[in-house]
Amino acid sequence: MKYLWFLPLFVGGLFLYMFAYAKATKLKEHNLFLHVKKEEKPLRLFFVSDIHRRKISEALIKQINEKFDAVIIGGDLAEKGVPLKRIEENVRRLSSLGKIYYIWGNNDREVGEANIKGIIQSFGGDVLENSSAVLKTGKQRWMICAVDDTSSGNLNLDQAFTSIQSSDITIFITHSPFVFKKAKNRYQPHVMMAGHTHGGQIRLGPFGMFKKGRMMEEEGYYSLISNGYGTSMVPLRLGARPECHIIRLNGNIE
Rank of each mutant, 00 (worst) to 15 (best):
K28H: 03
Y222F: 13
F207E: 04
A59H: 07
A24E: 11
K211Q: 11
S57P: 00
G213F: 08
R86M: 07
T137P: 08
P83F: 01
L45G: 13
L43Y: 14
F19W: 09
R214V: 08
E66L: 08
A114S: 10
L157S: 07
R241P: 01
A24Y: 07
E89A: 01
S232M: 14
Q201I: 01
E79N: 06
L14C: 11
S132H: 06
S49D: 02
R54K: 15
K80M: 05
L16V: 15
N90L: 09
L135P: 07
H190E: 15
T162H: 12
L43F: 15
A194S: 13
V191D: 03
P8G: 02
M1T: 05
K181H: 11
V11N: 10
W104E: 12
K26V: 09
M1G: 05
M1Y: 09
S166K: 12
L224E: 10
S57I: 05
G118Q: 06
Q159S: 14
L135F: 13
D108N: 01
K211C: 01
N252V: 13
N106H: 04
S232K: 08
R186T: 04
L14S: 11
I100L: 08
G195K: 09
G112I: 00
S131P: 09
I171P: 09
S96H: 14
L224V: 09
F68N: 10
E58H: 07
S176C: 05
L34E: 07
Y21W: 13
G74V: 12
R203Y: 13
Q159T: 14
F207I: 10
Y102G: 02
I61P: 15
S167H: 15
R86T: 07
N31K: 15
G199H: 08
K184R: 04
S95E: 06
P177V: 02
W104V: 03
I72E: 06
Y101I: 01
Y102W: 14
A59G: 07
T197D: 11
N250A: 10
L224P: 01
Y101Q: 04
M209S: 06
N90G: 11
C244T: 10
E218R: 13
E219S: 12
L128R: 08
L34V: 07
L9D: 07
L84N: 03
W142L: 09
G200S: 11
K181A: 04
E39R: 11
S96T: 05
S226R: 14
W142C: 08
V191R: 01
F6G: 00
Q159I: 10
G112K: 08
H196C: 04
G228K: 12
R109G: 00
W104P: 06
L238S: 04
G213S: 09
V179I: 00
K62A: 01
Y21V: 01
N90T: 11
L238A: 05
I120W: 04
I56K: 15
F6S: 00
R92G: 00
E40I: 09
N31S: 11
D158R: 14
L77R: 05
K41R: 12
S96Q: 15
C244N: 06
G205C: 02
I169C: 15
